[in-house]
Nucleic acid binder design. Structure first.
Lengths: 87, 87
DNA sequence: TGAATATATCGACACTTGTCAATCTCTTAA
DNA sequence: TTAAGAGATTGACAAGTGTCGATATATTCA
């Protein structure tokens, strides 16, 4: 549902996660890179990441012990397109 | 704040309000036009409209006894632009 | 195998949100 | 001035959300 994706964006910390992920080298980030700049505990960061993944905005790839998150290509653009078409 | 605007979009009924408003003749709607299609009580519709107005997405204009709501020109587009620039 | 480490999940808590019924406010008409 | 009607506000309540501490899972290394 469309509202689910907007709900995923409706939190300042999750918007910041998207910014950090997209601007990081290789455009991917692990949980450990997020906990400190967000000033949130590790379980909370995991929780936000899960919401973004389930909304189809982030990909999760596990390599070894680490989990790397990256933007789903085109996801934000298609969401933006639904906004423009409404106006 | 950016999250406030996405929060305004993070509800199915509010997305439907935007659709109805933008597609109605003159692109404006009064509360009485919304209550029935949304199957919501009048106070609930007023509540959702207030959230959309405070998010800067809808204009409210009172003419006589009725209140007419219309899209704020460019608001959805500029919000869409913030999404595209993140990717 | 066992220890160490990164991440996920669980349980709990305060806070927020969507909804409704009741009430209030404001405008028009008599 | 009073009555009627549109819409806003208030109060209440169930459901959802963000956060944390504790625990579980999974992977690497000795």
């Amino acid at each position: 549902m469309l509202a689910v994706r907007f709900k995923a964006l409706a939190d300042p910390n999750r918007l910041r996660i998207l910014s950090i992920v997209s601007s990081s080298p290789e455009a991917e980030t692990c949980v450990c890179d997020l906990s400190e700049p967000l000033k949130l505990g590790q379980p909370t960061v995991s929780h936000h990441l899960k919401i973004l993944v389930e909304a189809g905005l982030l990909n999760r790839e596990k390599r070894g012990v680490w989990a790397y998150y990256s933007l789903v290509p085109g996801a934000l653009d298609s969401l933006a397109a639904t906004l423009v078409s409404k106006g």
